[in-house]
């Protein structure tokens, strides 16, 4: 593999994975509460465009990231109201949310194509980043990347070591039992959905403000779907979602470099590879139904209707 520098590959991999990781960790919390929101792609792209618009108009990337999270959460609120209060089907509503988000984002972003957003600064000083090998890998990133890893750690800690996380898992395991014990199933699920929407929106804003960085229609290009697949791939475990996201980000980054190095494989196959690996991993995991089923929230995707 001549021409591929492992250090720059790892740095690129972390950057390429971060939008997927953010969306996946949000969706993981949503699914742990027993809700299947297939609208990740839509929330990501609405986050991407809202973040971009605010960043351009204020000149601050940080306000842009915040607006991305608010935009994603706002879109997820539609999903929350439809599925939790009006008891609509989660799969159909989630798909509709993606289509709605794609359309809404092109409308919002019409005037913003071809503009460059304000630069997002790196977090650590140049001296630290110049350390060979460790420098770029450990210190060569911006705040959002460190935030995404902290988020994974936080979600893991919250799910397994706090009462809030226990209640969330309980609601996702059996909403009827949780209701019988007096927990507010709908309120807890709405909070989880909003958290998922904010994470997806933040991931989208990271795409438009840092990764690309500019606004084009449909720029998420399936990242939301990969995030959904990663949640299953990770069997609903936060650290595994991190590994999964970096794995897929790694394939995407490697693929670009293989093309640049003019390895003699048709470009289409390399483009396909992340998706192909997703499918293969999903098939392998779901064929082992015993183990996967143990971790899957038992009430996932089921409509909760409080009776009596």
């Amino acid at each position: 593999m001549m021409g591929i520098d492992p250090v720059t590959l790892i740095v690129a991999l972390i950057g390429a994975s971060t939008p997927i990781l953010l969306a996946a960790i949000g969706e993981l919390v949503v699914e742990k509460s027993g809700v299947l929101n297939l609208g990740v792609e839509g929330m990501m792209i609405v986050g991407a465009v809202s973040g971009f618009i605010i960043a351009i108009n204020t000149g601050s990337p940080w306000l842009g990231f915040a607006a991305g999270a608010v935009g994603g959460a706002g879109l997820s609120l539609i999903f929350a109201l439809l599925t939790q209060y009006l008891l609509s089907n989660q799969v159909a509503t989630g798909l509709a949310l993606t289509l709605f988000g794609l359309g809404l984002s092109s409308l919002m972003g019409e005037a913003y194509t071809g503009i460059n957003p304000p630069l997002t600064p790196d977090l650590f000083p140049q001296a630290l980043r110049d350390i060979p090998v460790a420098g770029p890998i450990l210190f060569g990133h911006d705040l959002v990347i460190y935030l995404s890893i902290l988020l994974v750690a936080g979600v893991w800690y919250a799910l397994h070591h706090t009462r809030m996380g226990l209640i969330l898992r309980a609601v996702g395991e059996s909403h009827d039992a949780a209701h019988a014990l007096g927990y507010k199933v709908i309120r807890i699920r709405i909070c989880a959905i909003l958290f998922g929407g904010a994470c997806a929106g933040l991931g989208g804003a990271y795409l438009s403000l840092v990764r690309v960085p500019s606004w084009t229609e449909g720029m998420t290009a399936g990242a939301g779907w990969i995030a959904l697949a990663i949640v299953v791939f990770a069997s609903w475990k936060p650290w595994r979602a991190l590994i999964g996201a970096y794995l897929f980000g790694g394939i995407a980054a490697l693929q670009l470099r293989l093309q640049a190095a003019e390895i003699n494989i048709p470009v289409m196959f390399l483009d396909m590879s992340p998706y192909l690996v997703t499918i293969i991993v999903l098939v392998i995991i779901s064929s082992d139904r015993g183990r996967a089923a143990l971790n899957a929230p038992a009430a996932l995707g089921k409509v909760f209707h409080a009776s009596g």
């Binding site: 059996s174 949780a178 927990y183």
Partner: peptide, 13 residues
């Protein structure tokens, strides 16, 4: 009860 949680977690809930 919640099948995928352990006894102590069920009691705590």
């Amino acid at each position: 009860l919640f099948e995928a949680l352990n006894v102590a977690e069920n009691v705590a809930l």
